[in-house]
Design a protein around this nucleic acid. Structure first.
Length: 282
DNA sequence: AACGACGTCAACCGCCAGTAG
DNA sequence: ACTACTGGCGGTTGACGTCGT
């Protein structure tokens, strides 16, 4: 599943992230935010390039990442959006709360693409059979009543004029008269999502209740919430924050840890939060 | 049980756009 | 206007798991 750990020329680690590296990254970003990915590994005590840290955080460690199988609704949305937008994975993923562009991309290549292609083939077969039967009927009909020169090949019954090139047998929304360029149905999909899906209620409460020790930094595009030191350019102030952070953690450990952090390192993250064995900036 | 083919997905790579100096 | 830097994106890789023979 993961790559064998190795180092590049500059001594930066590559390959699979260890649980310890994850703990360091989570602890640092949770405390100070992702103010500069390039500089972050140095301060977080990680022998990784910033790009690798960013990727690990964005695709795997950040809160509210939704893991597990895609629902039928999610798959239908991906297929429809991909048909309209192409390989714009980040745009597609933005409509799937908790899903990353990498995850959407992987799921498309491993599962959905084949399914769509399979359905297209079936659809083509249905189309060609329909054309054959229509032509046979037209021929037999014209033999009796109509001169060949007056046959209309692009009439209302032509499957070519009504087909979207997308199977209508599997995906129910296709039969609901949506225009291909009309994303209106997406609104309904998104509205039906519980708001807690986007941002953990417990977390937002905690951030509001602890503004004395850290301030909230929320990414408006992803709804990610980070806790940022009031003055993260100073180690001295960070140490002060460490003390405040202890009480801050005490105040919410029971209500939030389980829901805030997702698998697979839920237990490890709890360890970080409870014991604060960060081992850096100290 | 052994082996190869295939599927999955975390992670890497290169490119590009935006921004600051 | 130009350059350097950074974050973000999409394409691709490759280790590991699963399945079929």
């Amino acid at each position: 599943m993961a790559r064998t750990p190795l180092c590049d020329k500059s001594g930066m680690r590559k390959g699979t992230w260890t649980a310890e590296e994850d703990r360091k990254l989570i602890a640092y970003v949770t405390k100070y935010g992702c103010w500069n990915w390039r500089q972050l590994p140095k301060f977080a005590g990680l022998a990784r390039c910033g790009k690798s840290c960013r990727l690990r955080w964005m695709n795997y460690l950040r809160p509210n990442i939704k893991r597990g199988n895609f629902t039928q609704q999610e798959e239908e949305l991906i297929i429809r959006m991909h048909k309209n937008l192409g390989n714009r994975w980040s745009t597609i993923a933005a409509e799937l709360p908790g899903r990353t562009d990498n995850e959407v991309k992987n799921h498309w290549h491993t599962s959905l693409k084949k399914r769509v292609q399979h359905n297209s083939i079936i659809n083509e077969e249905i189309k060609s059979k329909h054309i054959e039967s229509t032509q046979e009927r037209d021929i037999s009909f014209s033999q009796v009543t109509t001169p060949a020169s007056s046959q209309n090949t692009n009439g209302p019954l032509s499957p070519i004029s009504s087909s979207s090139g997308f199977s209508s047998t599997t995906y129910s929304y296709q039969s609901s008269n949506h225009d291909l360029d009309d994303f209106g149905f997406l609104d309904g999909f998104i509205e039906s999502m519980d708001q807690s899906f986007w941002l953990d209620d417990d977390l937002s409460t905690i951030v509001q209740d602890n503004t004395n020790c850290a301030f909230q930094n929320q990414d408006t595009t992803t709804n990610d919430v980070f806790l940022v030191s009031p003055n993260n350019s100073s180690n001295e102030s960070n140490l002060v924050l460490d003390n405040d952070f202890s009480s801050f953690l005490d105040s919410y450990e029971e209500s939030t840890v389980d829901s805030f952090w997702t698998q697979p390192y839920e237990a490890d993250m709890s360890h970080v939060l409870y014991n604060q064995q960060w081992g850096f900036l100290e």
